[in-house]
Design a protein around this nucleic acid. Structure first.
Length: 423
RNA sequence: GCGAAAUUGGUGAAGUGGUUAACACGGUGGAUUGUGGUUCCAUUAUGCAAGGGUUCGAUUCCCUUAUUUCGCCCCA
C-alpha cells in the first residue's frame, strides 16, 4: 500500500469542516482590516530563500526542499511566506504607483524537511500578513492585533502575547557584540547546544530551556539597555498603541527570533493550554526594515507575522472550542426502484439549485437502509419516490423530526420547503 | 541531524512460536416484497505495515525499510 509522505496529512470529515470555518473567518477578518490577498508560487528560485531568510538559519541550511527542474534551474519549495511576498512587492513595483502602505495577507502550504512531531509537519499551512512602507509603530501594533483578534473571534482563551524589541540594525549589532563579550568567559558553563549557538546566533542563547535558570542567564545584558533613542521610542509607541487597542501582552526581554531579518519589534503568541506539547507557539513575527533592500528592492520597511494553522487547530481542539457548523442536510431522496431514479435525479438537481442541501441514494439500497441513511445524514426531510409519485407528480415527503408525512404537488415542493426550513 | 515507543479488518481493539486470529461497532442480506431508527438471524481479515532471516513451523523472535506518535535542535 502506498502511504502518505512523511510529515504530511489528509484533511476530510469533521476536521475539514472546522478547518474551512477557520479559513473563512480569516478571510472575513482580513477583509475588515482591508488587507489585500496575495498568492505567490509554491516554489521559487532557491536564491530567494537563501538571501531572504538568511544563509545561516536552520531553515535554509538543513530544512529546504531543493530540486532542479528539467531546465537545470535551482528551485526550492517555499519554507515560509515573507520572502515570496517581498519578492512579489519588488517585482511588481508596488513601491511606485501603488498606495503605500501595501498591506498583504496570504494563506497556503509551506514545506520544511524536519522531523515530524506534535504540532509540526513537513507540509504545513501558514496564514500570514506583511505591511510594507510604514515605519509607524501603529503598523507593528496593528499586525500584533490581527492574530489576537482572530483568536478572540474563534473563542480561544489560553493565549499569551510576548513582545520584545531588537532595536534597529545599529542597536541590534551593539547588543549582539555585548552578548558575545558577556558570554565568552562562561562558554564552558553553557550546554552543548548553547556552545553551538554562541558561534551561530548568540541571541538565541537567551531562550535556551536547559540553561534558563543559570545566574549568568539572569544577569545577561538586556536588549532594552542597548537601544538607541529612536529604537527606544519606537518600542514605547508600539506598547502605547497596543494598550489603546486593549491588547494584553507581556514584555519578554529574552524573546529573540530565529530568522535573521528582524529589527525592532518581535513578538510571539503562545497557547498556554495544559498538555499542549512543546510546539506551543501559534504565531510569530516582527518588523524587518532591511529585508526589501536585501532582496534588491528600494529601502522599504516591513512588518508581519506568520501563523501555523495546524497548531491553531490543535489549540482549538484542546479547548473544545465549538463552531457553528452545518451538520445535516435538508432533503434525502429515496427512489423506490431503478425506474424512478431519473425522476429523482431531476428532482435532486432542482432542490439543490434552489438552495437546499440535498442528497440521494446512489447505491440502490432497500427502503429500510435508506431510512437509516437519512438518519445518519441527519436529514430534515425524506422524499420517497415510487411509481405512483412519478406518474402523478404528487410527492411524498416526510418530516424526519416530527414523522409527519405530506403529499405535495411537485410544483409546490420548493415553496413547502422554503416555509418549513426558512425560519 | 540525534533519541524513545508504536504499526493486527471499514473502525475500536484482544491475542498466541503450531493446525478455524476473540469481542464490539459499522457494512450487506433477511425475518418485515412502500416507511426505518428496537429486536433476532446470517454474512463480513487465506490475514496481523513491507521485505528478508532464524525455525519442522512465525502475526508472535531477529534485522532492514516505510509510516505514526512523543522528545531534543529549530520553528508556525
Amino acid at each position: 500500500m502506498i502511504q502518505k509522505a512523511k510529515g504530511t496529512y489528509d484533511v476530510f470529515g469533521e476536521y475539514g469542516k472546522r478547518l474551512l470555518y477557520v479559513e473563512e473567518l480569516i478571510e472575513g477578518l482580513m477583509e475588515k482590516y482591508n488587507y489585500e490577498y496575495f498568492r505567490t508560487p509554491i516554489f521559487e528560485s532557491s536564491n530567494l530563500f537563501h538571501r531572504g531568510v538568511g544563509e545561516t538559519t536552520d531553515i535554509v541550511t538543513k530544512e529546504t526542499y531543493d530540486f532542479k527542474d528539467r531546465g537545470d534551474r535551482d528551485l526550492t519549495l517555499r519554507p515560509e511566506g515573507t520572502a515570496s511576498i517581498v519578492r512579489s512587492f519588488i517585482e511588481n513595483k508596488m513601491y511606485g504607483n501603488h498606495t503605500i502602505p501595501v498591506k498583504a495577507w496570504y494563506y497556503g502550504p509551506m514545506f520544511r524537511y524536519e522531523r515530524p512531531q506534535s504540532g509540526r509537519f513537513r507540509e504545513f499551512y501558514q496564514f500570514g500578513v506583511e505591511v510594507f512602507g510604514s515605519e509607524d509603530p501603529l503598523a507593528d501594533a496593528e499586525v500584533i492585533s490581527i492574530p489576537v483578534n482572530l483568536y478572540k473571534l474563534l473563542g480561544l482563551k489560553g493565549i499569551k502575547v510576548n513582545i520584545n524589541t531588537l532595536g534597529d540594525s545599529e542597536s541590534r549589532e551593539m547588543y549582539r557584540n555585548a552578548l558575545i563579550k558577556y558570554f565568552e568567559p562562561y562558554i564552558n558553563d553553557l550546554c552543548e547546544d548553547c556552545k553551538e549557538r554562541f558561534n551561530k546566533n548568540p541571541l538565541r542563547i537567551l531562550d535556551c530551556k536547559v540553561d534558563a535558570n543559570l545566574d549568568i542567564m539572569k544577569n545577561a545584558p538586556k536588549t532594552i539597555d542597548y537601544l538607541n533613542e529612536t529604537s527606544k521610542k519606537h518600542f514605547e509607541m508600539v506598547k502605547k498603541y497596543l494598550d489603546s487597542m486593549h491588547i494584553e501582552y507581556s514584555v519578554n526581554t529574552n524573546l529573540v527570533r530565529g530568522l535573521d531579518y528582524y529589527t525592532h519589534t518581535v513578538f510571539e503568541v503562545e497557547a498556554s493550554v495544559e498538555g499542549f506539547g512543546s510546539q506551543n507557539v501559534l504565531c510569530g513575527g516582527g518588523r524587518y526594515d532591511n529585508l526589501v533592500e536585501t532582496l534588491d528592492g528600494p529601502k522599504t520597511s516591513g512588518v508581519g507575522f506568520a501563523m501555523g494553522i495546524e497548531r491553531l487547530m490543535t489549540a482549538l481542539d484542546y479547548e473544545n472550542v465549538s463552531m457553528p457548523l452545518i451538520n445535516g442536510i435538508d432533503c434525502y431522496i429515496i427512489p423506490m426502484s431503478e425506474n424512478e431514479k431519473e425522476y429523482c435525479a431531476h428532482l435532486c438537481m432542482e432542490l439543490r439549485l434552489n438552495g437546499f442541501i440535498t442528497d440521494i441514494d446512489y447505491n440502490n439500497r432497500n427502503i429500510k437502509n435508506n431510512f437509516k441513511m437519512a438518519d445518519r445524514l441527519n436529514s430534515k426531510f425524506v422524499i420517497i419516490i415510487g411509481e405512483e409519485e412519478k406518474n402523478t407528480n404528487i410527492i411524498t415527503i416526510k418530516n424526519n423530526e416530527t414523522k409527519e408525512e405530506y403529499k405535495i404537488n411537485s410544483e409546490e415542493l420548493i415553496n413547502f420547503l422554503d416555509e418549513s426550513i426558512g425560519e
